[in-house]
């Protein structure tokens, strides 16, 4: 049985509209205007138990709305969904015992209390006995490296530390499925890596399925087996991550900074110079034709490196690329 089955899911909102100015405000008191927003349009997909599925797309694509329908918080306008055998919006509380959720932009930990108090509270809320909760807290402390953070009030933790505690809290009751809505949003590179490592470990050790929404292509590269790209509420692409990487995430951007002034011609074969400065350079290269290690060797040979950043193309660019290819196929070019 699939962990998640979604069939022709649709969510339509009515959003109030008002023009700028006092006159428009006065008019809106008597006559309101609404815009119909199709947040999710005819969405269908499946996810297998234990799978790590990336659900990605730019801001406003419909990712969060979908995940909130799958947790039963929002009722769909039409369509069906089954999560671990439950219809989420009809059996929300039964489903809640089986899933963990993290909504990256919103805290679930009690802000003024140490995280361990929320963990203990969650143990009671999920109706686990004290021995189970204590054992689980010890296990998660190790897996997420949060042992020394648990007794600090949450308000005093950094965002990265807090997010590790948030994800750990969502796993306290040992759910079968984890729904993560932008868990890495706003985090620096190190904190993102920490979170990704911990999620991957938990998935491997406990077989927990992970549905992850993100607008960061790095999240799915690091974590997911399969990816669904959604834009304007519709699936624009779904495939294995390895195929996506091969087809669309081949171009990398590398930015380096040197300890001293450098004066080198960076117009190297297979690389495109995006920006040059006295102390650094920003280049882009295609991994299919130019291996990353070759690029790094050439760059390190030019001087003493003090900083280096390698990044993927922005997701918007990937989506535009996918659209471009689809249009070419559709028009037979």
């Amino acid at each position: 049985m699939s962990a998640i089955t979604v069939s022709h899911l649709q969510k339509i909102f009515q959003s109030k509209r008002k023009a700028a100015g006092l006159g428009a405000s006065a008019r809106s008191l008597f006559q309101s205007e609404y815009t119909t927003v199709e947040a999710v349009r005819d969405l269908s997909f499946e996810m297998q138990p234990g799978e790590l599925l990336g659900f990605i797309g730019p801001n406003g694509a419909g990712k969060s709305t979908t995940i909130k329908m799958l947790t039963g918080i929002l009722h769909p306008t039409s369509g069906d969904a089954s999560v671990l055998g439950f219809t989420p919006w009809k059996e929300r509380q039964k489903l809640a015992f089986q899933i963990g959720t993290v909504f990256g932009q919103r805290p679930q930990l009690w802000y003024h209390l140490p995280a361990v108090d929320t963990f203990t509270l969650f143990g009671k809320i999920y109706e686990r006995d004290d021995a189970f909760t204590q054992k689980r807290i010890a296990f998660l402390s190790e897996a997420f490296e949060i042992g020394d953070l648990l007794e600090t009030p949450v308000r005093k933790l950094s965002l990265g530390q807090r997010m590790r505690c948030e994800v750990a809290a969502s796993l306290l009751h040992q759910p079968k499925l984890l729904l993560l809505d932008e868990p890495s949003i706003g985090l620096d590179v190190v904190a993102k890596q920490h979170i990704r490592d911990a999620i991957r470990t938990m998935s491997q050790e406990e077989g927990v399925g992970v549905l992850l929404t993100s607008h960061d292509a790095g999240d799915l590269e690091a974590l997911c087996h399969r990816v669904i790209i959604i834009n304007h509420g519709q699936i624009v692409y779904q495939d294995k991550v390895s195929n996506l990487k091969r087809k669309f995430l081949t171009r990398k951007t590398v930015e380096v900074r040197y300890a001293e002034e450098v004066n080198v011609n960076f117009n190297l074969e297979g690389m495109e110079t995006l920006k040059t400065g006295r102390y650094g350079v920003k280049l882009s290269f295609d991994t299919r034709t130019t291996p990353a290690d070759a690029v790094l060797m050439r760059l390190s040979a030019a001087g003493t490196l003090v900083d280096i950043t390698i990044s993927d193309p922005p997701l918007e660019e990937v989506i535009a690329n996918i659209y471009g290819r689809q249009l070419s196929v559709d028009s037979g070019l």
Binding site: T71, G72, I73, A96, R106
Partner: peptide, 13 residues
Amino acid sequence: RDGSIAYLLSKPY
């Protein structure tokens, strides 16, 4: 308003 209701509604209580 701040969306944190998402957590409150996704817990078994």
